[in-house]
Design a protein around this nucleic acid. Sequence first.
DNA 1: CTGAAAGCGCTAACAA
DNA 2: TTGTTAGCGCTTTCAG
Lengths: 342, 342
Amino acid sequence: MVTIYDIAKRANVSAMTVSRVINDSGRISAKTREKVKRIMDELNYVPNSTARSLVKQETKMLSLLITDITNPFFTTLARGAEDAALELGYKLLFGNSDEKLAKEREYVDMVLSTRVDGLLFAPASDASIEHLNMLDRHRIPYVLVDRDVPGTEADVVLGENRLGADQLTDYLIGLGHRRIALVNGYGTVSTARERYGGYCDALARHGIHYDESLVVEYGYNRFDDPDKLERLLALPNPPTALFAANNVLAVSVISFLRDKGIGVPEQISVVCFEDVGLASKLDPFLTVAVQPAYDFGYKGIHLLAERIRLKDEMERRIIRLPSAMIVRKSAAAPPKTSTPDF
Amino acid sequence: MVTIYDIAKRANVSAMTVSRVINDSGRISAKTREKVKRIMDELNYVPNSTARSLVKQETKMLSLLITDITNPFFTTLARGAEDAALELGYKLLFGNSDEKLAKEREYVDMVLSTRVDGLLFAPASDASIEHLNMLDRHRIPYVLVDRDVPGTEADVVLGENRLGADQLTDYLIGLGHRRIALVNGYGTVSTARERYGGYCDALARHGIHYDESLVVEYGYNRFDDPDKLERLLALPNPPTALFAANNVLAVSVISFLRDKGIGVPEQISVVCFEDVGLASKLDPFLTVAVQPAYDFGYKGIHLLAERIRLKDEMERRIIRLPSAMIVRKSAAAPPKTSTPDF
DNA sequence: CTGAAAGCGCTAACAA
DNA sequence: TTGTTAGCGCTTTCAG
């Protein structure tokens, strides 16, 4: 491997001179600079950032931990994070927790030992607080994204979940629905709680009775127990509309309904939070509340970079990014018959 | 920061003893091992992998460079790569070239300076050979994935592009189509050439005249010049079916056709290579050739790890992963009228 | 089974 | 403007 010393020897200067040329620091005569640069080129020199990290105590690496790398929301978020990181001179290490606390734990261990300069973190659930505490103990700056965790003091970039859910529910009510089911994420995730809140807000505002048998919970990344939904549909007074708390759940629900021969939106209307990537382009079908996923990542990395610079000298920042409702075709007025026949 | 020396001092042993405990290497008495471990816990010690990398001359980091992080094919590939890397004790650094040579170049620079142990590389085009040469000069092991590059000696994981494209085209012919257009990627990308080959194979086998005006090329990640397609449709004898070389192009094409009020598959049939993520679950519409995307990543990382271990002591390996055709609804028999009216 | 010394490639701090 | 020295946190090598 070509080192600074190889260059120094060939150029008849000290290692420090080479280092200064590499870093554009210190005053160097134009002549030596040129000479050193030429030799660096000749030898195909590439600085060893491992060595530099060790002495500078910074890696110029940031890390992004998301919970579902196959979800278009998170991949778009990742793109935003990557762009921001590159602009700011950082590399980005990605990780994927699959909504699992155990995988998240492993990843946090790795992050600690890799000595990344900071972490943009989409926590799997409230229980992630334990991992945040680890990060705190080791003084690794981090910013939360998409989900908040009670008990943390960290900066956070969140969506307007409550408002967005309210809007979506309100829309269904406007269409004439009164029995609206919520297919939610687990209550241990802040977005699920907030979307639940918005759902209740809309119901209450319209004087509609809240019925807890209309609410079911799933993991955001998998629709693993169709029975729950089955029971919902078997209710004496079943829902005429479903509000799915995220895109993956919505797609699963629709796929499930279709398999049972239930028409969407003819028999049941469906809306959800988050758009569905290519699917919405292929067939603009789902009525959704889209979030500016790219900005979540972009803004998150910027907050993180500032936090790294300023450490504790800055108040906690909570950014709320608005969502926008896109009306398409998956929701319509409820069927006329009062007792649907699924 | 807690270092090995802090532990050593507290435990009344040498740094080497601590190092040996950490690495489970060398014979250590059970008693000292326990003592050292206890103190490591007490102090929340986390090894500094930067320092370790510097002396061991390996980072235990692998890198994955893909060309489109928003494409479900590549994100699924990424998941496979991540799983394999973790299993093998590596971290994974992700990068995204957006099909752009310039971004790819920057990423390769970064990879060199980060001293990753190896790179799993989906090249943007044949011109990527320049970057492969850089990698070679610096002795960084790499494996190509999804796309081959003429002139390289590297291991590579590829799809059965020619066969898959043949099969898809054959299917359209079987449906009765004779005028089949190919909406391809650029000819500078190996998959585009191979898919073109398969298209021609099927045509030839059935004695169908190859008409070059039926072939247009786009970047795989963007449908940027609709005029090309427009001209295709304006042909005196226009196509009754379109074969899109990848998922993104297919979705764009369908969206374009829909905007023009052209029915798929009533007026034009469409098939493509690669499935479309959530879209296919939401609405099983597109007839496609799916590739085992996860395995591309998983297998690729395994090849890479072997290559890192064995360096030049192994022949070049070329893995071909089969694709499977999934017949859905986007292709049907051509319309009866001999002169369609778009 | 345990330790001392040296050094991975680089840069901070101080000198000249 | 350039150089010298020391050391980042760890492991290799050799010695006990």
